[in-house]
Design a protein around this nucleic acid. Structure first.
Lengths: 405, 405
DNA sequence: AATTCTTTTTTCGAGCAGTGAAATTAATGC
DNA sequence: GCATTAATTTCACTGCTCGAAAAAAGAATT
């Protein structure tokens, strides 16, 4: 049984976590602001910050560093994360790109390695070797940060196993069923976490708009795949097995268009870039999907649709209908207050909106509660990276530093 | 902001809640068993039970009451809930029946009032008057329990508003948009909670089978309606707005069969009793659904199908297909380890199983993770009542007594 | 019948984290 | 230089858990 007992230790963990969380969300704060933000007394904040400073987790900012909006009274001393106390390595694995970012504890990007991915990349070298190579390279280029590296986090697409340590299936060729997370953890003696890209989108979306931070939000990515992540009143839904959310592969039409995953009738088969292109060019639904669609080609199609081209607009209508019915069906199970559309497909939102709304209108829950706000975020400002970053740093905060003696 | 600060008060609440929770789940226990079950030290258990006994929340059982499986050593003294310290009134509102049960703090049924409901019941008298009448009647018949009544809980079908205090929509005629929960709370000066029937099914299912207590389970009710509740690792999904789960009204086929809710193509329109009957008798899909189906008629249809009647088996196949695709779509968002089918339709599970599995097999998540266990519970032993009971008593435990000075 | 085990429960002193109130600190304004 | 203001720290106290030791209550043994 998990130890649910509450004792002075769990109290300290909880309250230190609150302090670190406030700093993570709001940036450097004065002790008074921390007391207000966390609800703890000034006395407790003094004790907690004293400990955290002693352990070098946080530090007082130099007076020079703070912009002095002076008033009367003793000026506040801000405390903020000690950037040098730890670091994290963040991999983003996509169908056609791998990116490794080294960030410090303050969330500042230190170094980055990008590598194109081809369908044969992980056939030629194992995923473990591929990732280990790049991580070693990054370590040798940044010895200082490497010495305080505490976490490796990997954003992937696909379905994770129950333990969240490997992929059962992935659209990235030759990546599924390889124990790279475990092997990497062993080789570098570091915790390695796998995160579903869709889930990170939801995490990232919370940082796009502060108003969303504590709301129930479904974030839908539309692009080379279709994916979704959800937050429920500020909590990410699902760690581990339960939220194997595969929105893009929810069935839209039984026996429908062939999807990249091999099944038929998935939302993705209609709404992803390859699906839209296939429809626009009247390629049969059962034709094998293109392995990758150049970004330019997708952009061109959007432009043509916006110019009024019948085939193109039809294709986006079909896509919108698929997304709309998917959302309407999802809402029968889970009813978020906001729906965000992100990714390259967000640019085509105007072309899909009418069909999305029509489909939503056919859901009882929408008729009763009204249509949810569906909003497209075009300038996505890298929500996946942001999500991966914040999730990983937050994990360090809460696990390593909230609990440190 | 909710006060997330942890202090000695929250420690006490948490640990007293743990003790009460263990007693709720496992029945009367010795202090040693409580220490083992909760993870608290013997010293703490002594202190906590001492306080709870002093406040009459729990009591030591008379030695006579415990079956003595004696061994050596000092015999254990069991402690259990003091049944007389509080009571709850539980309403179950159905399409054709209202039931009010009075239960004591030990979960023992004290008294019960059943009333048939007709489509005009809540037009002739307001829901508030109807409920208040019966509650007063119960109070006057049981003055002792009435004096310690602490909660009124109401099981309803339909869609709740964001605050969970009234129904936005309900299949029960004239019940929606009446503020009966608020009015009842004011009149009796008691907290009144509205619970979705589907949600309670999920709660109740946890008590049907101890193995399910901490699993992720979707419980599907098939009968005069189709509804679902979900637990995630032992936590009921959704309190309040988010889980406005209306599984029965998830769209199955765009522009499909007419549902009682007025929309078209809902799962319920194919899989509920009226849906199956409509299909079996080749009534057009767009014919208005029968307001209520006699239980006997549904049983007869099952019997006919089991005897091989073509029209009947076809109807159940259609129903299974609707439920199966609904589940397959749900699993793209939420992936439970177990699926339970309960309600009158559980008897027809054998007739629907093949189509359910076929539909599930078309979901990527099932192809990858394997089909979930779909099990029918025929002898449902009143999961709704059980769920309402346990949820309400647990709420009293955690809110009133875990925190009491 | 007295003594020895065995198991359950309570007692006791220590440790720890949070709190409010009062004191201290460090600037501003006159 | 001194009053004023606002941020922090100090201090005395509270309440909770914990481990170890003691007490309690029968069973088994002699």
């Amino acid at each position: 049984m998990a130890r649910n007992v509450s004792d002075s230790d769990s109290v300290r963990r909880q309250n230190r976590g609150l302090v670190l969380g406030a700093l993570r969300v709001q940036g450097p704060l004065s002790r008074t602001a921390l007391a207000a933000g966390t609800g703890l007394s000034h006395a407790s904040i003094t004790a907690i910050t004293h400990d955290l400073i002693e352990q070098q987790v946080i530090a007082e900012l130099e007076p020079a560093e703070r912009q002095d909006a002076r008033g009367r009274g003793r000026p506040a001393t801000l405390v903020g994360f000690n950037r040098h106390v730890s670091a994290a390595a963040l991999f983003e694995l996509d169908v056609n790109r791998a990116r490794l970012s080294l960030v410090d504890y303050g969330g500042i990007l230190v170094d980055r390695i990008e590598t194109p991915i081809t369908p044969t990349t992980f056939a030629e070298s194992t995923p473990t070797a591929f990732l280990a190579d790049r991580l070693r390279q990054l370590q040798s280029r940044n010895p200082v940060e490497a010495s305080v590296l505490r976490r490796v986090a990997i954003s992937v697409q696909g379905i994770l196993d129950r333990e969240g340590q490997s992929l059962r299936w992935s659209p990235i060729a030759h990546l599924a069923n390889k124990p790279f997370a475990t092997e990497l953890a062993a080789e570098f003696a570091l915790p390695v976490a796998l995160h579903k890209r869709g889930r990170l989108l939801a995490e990232g979306a919370r940082w796009l708009d502060p108003a969303l931070h504590d709301a129930s939000v479904a974030t839908v990515f539309v692009g080379s795949t279709v994916a979704m992540g959800m937050t429920f009143r500020g909590q990410i839904l699902g760690r581990g097995d339960e939220g194997a959310t595969e929105f893009g592969h929810m069935n839209h039409l039984p026996n429908g268009a062939l999807c990249r995953c091999g099944m038929r009738g998935c939302i993705e088969a209609y709404a992803s870039d390859y699906g839209v292109l296939r429809t626009a060019y009247s390629v049969p639904e059962t034709a094998p999907p293109a392995p990758a669609v150049p970004a330019q080609q997708y952009e061109d199609l959007i432009a043509r649709a916006e110019a009024g081209d019948r085939n193109a607009t039809h294709a986006f209508n079909v896509a919108g209908r698929a997304v709309g019915f998917g959302l309407s069906r999802m809402m029968a199970v889970f009813d978020p207050s906001h729906i965000l559309i992100v990714g390259p497909g967000a640019r085509a939102f105007g072309l899909m909106q009418a069909e999305i709304n029509a489909a939503l209108a056919s859901a009882l829950i929408c008729r009763v509660n009204g249509l949810p706000q569906v909003v497209a975020y075009r300038d996505e400002r890298e929500p996946v990276f942001k999500g991966l970053l914040m999730k990983t740093l937050n994990e360090i905060d809460q696990t390593d530093f909230a609990t440190l003696a």
